[in-house]
Amino acid sequence: MIRVVIPHHLRRLTNAGKEVQLAVEGPVTVQSVLDALEAEYPMLRGTIREHGTGKRRAFLRFFACEQDLSHQPVDDPLPDAVVTGTEPFLIVGAMAGG
């Protein structure tokens, strides 16, 4: 199972706690993980990726294994530790304020 940590404000929508576990069919990528997340929690559609374009919302970041994966192609494979469930895939609100 893929472990996904979602940010505080979105937990209020899912009512599923800090971390959710997802079964992902086929290659484990940013795209496939988010597809599975939105299929399980449809109220998240539009909050992480924009409707229409599917682009990551500007103030969100994707981290895993101490790497920022926000800017890599969404079809690139995620690290093995995410695929095996050893490490979570983190969806993070970007820092704001000064």
């Binding site: 404000h9 909050t47 609100g93």
Partner: peptide, 22 residues
Amino acid sequence: WFGQLIQRSDDGGQTWEPVGNE
């Protein structure tokens, strides 16, 4: 950060449900 949501209540604001946001 998370864009637009629309919430709907059918019991005078005691409980809410996210509806369409596209």
